[in-house]
Design a protein around this nucleic acid. Structure first.
Length: 469
RNA sequence: GGUGGAAUGGCCGAGAGGCGAGGCAAGGGACUGCAAAUCCCUCUACACGGGUUCAAAUCCCGUUUCCACCUCCA
């Protein structure tokens, strides 16, 4: 079995993943700033790293996965004013929106999901330590800054030179030793929430949160730090600066997912081109949206279009349909198994597109096996496909996606009714009364029920493509 | 100005020196009473200009276009 190789933004190369502790993996992922409902770009990040996590677990690593919630920042405070609601109510509202979206797309809950406001003590301790070590200073205005020029490693992740950066727009240079010094702690403004500190009342800067929480849950050093590409600078640079200045080894590897684009441009609220998860879930199911978001390589831009999403969903339904038919024929759900191709693809920096090519091949083999009544072939293909889908978080048999079809009495009744009607159609066909049989089929289609005539007799299913939008 | 990324057939999307990933669409065929589903076959590529090499989509040099980060961003 090949070993897992992953990209590292720091070295800009793909290399073998060697955990700090054999058999264990620790990941910190920058989660949401809960100031608005999630768009699909946010959730793509969640899906990408969920696939990484599932693959690590499947590969035998005892995995600790942290994804934080930033529940205090400028935008949340602005939103609170705008919505005439307490800031903490705003934060919780959108945190739940994110949780709902993650759940709908079968993104597993992290091992721990710390909120920034629950770790103020740790942040204050970290800031105190940075001051003590001579890396941070409190100039007396209530702010605390990190002195970036004292750190040799500053900007190594983004490979920039500090003097090449564009001048900061709103830098308050009266208190900073250098324009590029960034706030670890911000003095409270009138009306803002605050916490007492030795330097005055205030609230945390954005970057310190992640350093403090990563340290709390994963220790001084850990295997992988993840996030969106746009976090490299300044957020991740500043996390590194704070953590290394505090004497932590911090992250050994950095993984960044690319974003979802629309018309070639990054999806963002300011451009007005963001697509909310709840909107898209009106036209496709969660499992289909996940399949779409997970299908591109995590480091590639994913150009969104309604047509691409629909195409992807249709493709997924073909796979799902095969698994359902296979389980009907075999009389039980296929046992998940991993094909060598799939393992090799996933081990190569999570090459999902290649893995999908392998699934297509298995699908072809499986469908042929159905035609040939080759149950061993059906079972083999179905197992490999299900094993792959499980890792991708798109297993149709996963209880998360199950719609309770088996147990639902209404569905049982519907099944009985449709089968009764199909029996009439079969009878009509047997007596070559095709006008009658077609009338029944057309009638069912009009009701959103599609019919497949298989070697084992007619099958019916609710057509997914009907009734959307 | 600095730092990254991208350009592949009608569309989406991999690959990264040598048998043209895969999917969708299109055309043909098998199956079917007709469909649907499924299977088989076919077709269309590597932004541009140079160079290295027996061999380049892939490496090197240059050019163009686009995107992103440098302010909050997944």
């Amino acid at each position: 079995m090949s070993s897992l190789k992953l990209y590292d933004t720091l070295s800009r190369t793909v290399s073998e993943f060697i955990p700090l502790q054999p058999g264990k993996a620790s990941i910190y992922l920058c989660g949401a700033t809960v100031q608005a409902p999630p768009h699909i770009g946010h959730i793509r990040s969640g899906v990408n790293f969920d696939i990484l996590r599932r693959w690590l677990v499947k590969s035998g690593f005892d995995t600790t996965f942290i994804r934080n919630v930033t529940d205090i920042d400028d935008k949340i405070l602005h939103k609170a004013v705008h919505e005439q609601s307490p800031w903490w109510a705003v934060a919780l509202k959108y945190e739940r929106a994110f949780t709902d979206a993650y759940t709908a797309l079968n993104v597993l809950p992290p091992t721990y999901e710390p909120r920034a406001t629950g770790h103020i003590t740790q942040m204050i301790d970290l800031i105190a330590s940075l001051i003590e070590r001579g890396h941070a200073y409190a100039p007396g205005n209530g702010d605390v800054y990190l002195e970036v020029r004292k750190l040799d490693s500053y900007l190594t992740l983004s490979n920039q030179n500090i003097d090449d950066l564009l001048p900061a727009q709103d830098a308050d240079e009266t208190y900073k030793r250098d324009v590029r010094d960034f706030a670890l702690w911000k003095a409270a403004k009138a009306g803002d929430p605050f916490w007492p500190t030795p330097w005055g009342n205030g609230r945390p800067g954005w970057h310190i949160e992640c350093s403090a929480m990563a340290h709390t849950y994963l220790g001084a050093e850990f295997d992988i730090h993840g996030g969106g590409l746009d976090l490299i600078f300044p957020h991740h640079e500043n996390e590194i600066a704070q953590s290394e200045a505090a004497g932590y080894g911090f992250a050994k590897r950095w993984l960044h997912n690319a974003w979802v684009t629309a018309s070639g441009e990054k999806m963002s609220k300011s451009l007005g081109n963001s697509l909310q998860v709840t909107e898209l879930l009106k036209s496709v199911r969660g499992i289909e949206l996940r399949w779409y978001l997970g299908s591109a390589h995590y480091r590639s831009m994913l150009e969104f279009s309604p047509a691409a999403l629909e195409e992807s969903a249709v493709g997924f339904r073909r796979i799902e349909n095969f698994l359902l038919r296979a389980s009907e024929i075999l009389g039980s759900q296929p046992e998940p198994a991993l094909s060598a191709d799939f393992v090799a693809a996933m081990n190569e920096d999570l090459a999902v597109p290649q893995a999908l090519a392998g699934i297509s091949e298995q699908l072809r083999l499986g469908n042929s096996a159905i035609t040939e009544n080759n149950n061993a072939g059906i079972a083999s293909a179905a197992s490999f496909i299900r094993g792959a889908l499980e890792v991708l978080g798109c297993d149709p048999f996963d209880p998360t996606f199950a719609n309770g079809a088996q147990s639902d009495s209404l569905t049982c009744a519907l099944d009985g009714v449709v089968n009764l009607v199909l029996a009439q159609r079969t009878a009509a066909r047997d007596r070559k009364d095709f006008a009658a049989s077609d009338q029944i089929r057309d009638g069912l289609i009009a009701l959103g029920i599609s019919i497949e005539d298989t070697a084992q007799g007619p099958r019916w299913s609710i057509s997914r493509s009907e009734g959307s939008n």
